[in-house]
């Protein structure tokens, strides 16, 4: 149970990191940095690389799901148009998934070392 709570918290934290970085400035960098950080946060204290990466990607997908749902409530028409934009929509999502993957991968290396204190 505790593990589940930690994982959910990590997912949500990762999601908010991405939200925060996207609000700072609109360039391509913050999507990559934000998703990387989200992946890093979401994979906190995971030791297995596969779970680490899954958590990282899941946090980014959770972000897009929540934002899409929120904006669908506000402007359903605009959001449906977004889905027609093809690569305009998919490329940032794919890029952020890959960035999150990197965050999860590095997290899976980093956290066990922080835990054990080994160099």
């Amino acid at each position: 149970m505790r593990r589940i709570i930690i994982r959910v918290s990590n997912l949500v934290a990762g999601m908010f990191i991405l939200l925060a970085t996207l609000n700072i400035y609109l360039s391509g960098y913050e999507v990559i940095i934000g998703a990387f950080l989200a992946g890093l946060i979401a994979s906190y204290r995971e030791e297995k690389a596969s779970i680490s990466i899954c958590m990282a990607i899941a946090s980014v997908l959770l972000f897009y799901l929540v934002m899409t749902a929120y904006y669908y409530l506000l402007n359903p028409y605009g959001v449906m148009v977004m889905f027609k934009t093809g690569p305009l929509l998919y490329v940032p999502i794919v890029v952020s998934i890959i960035a999150a993957f990197c965050g999860g991968l590095i997290g899976s290396v980093l956290y066990p070392r922080l835990k054990t204190g080994s160099p």
Binding site: M82, L89, C102, I106
Partner: peptide
């Protein structure tokens, strides 16, 4: 693992131009 992660990240930065244009358009 670290190298793979860093290399992929660096490659992504190469795509930053396209992403920056795209996400300005559809940033929710």
């Amino acid at each position: 693992k670290v190298l793979v992660g860093v290399v992929i990240l660096l490659l992504l930065f190469g795509a930053v131009n396209m992403v920056s244009i795209l996400q300005k358009v559809i940033n929710p």
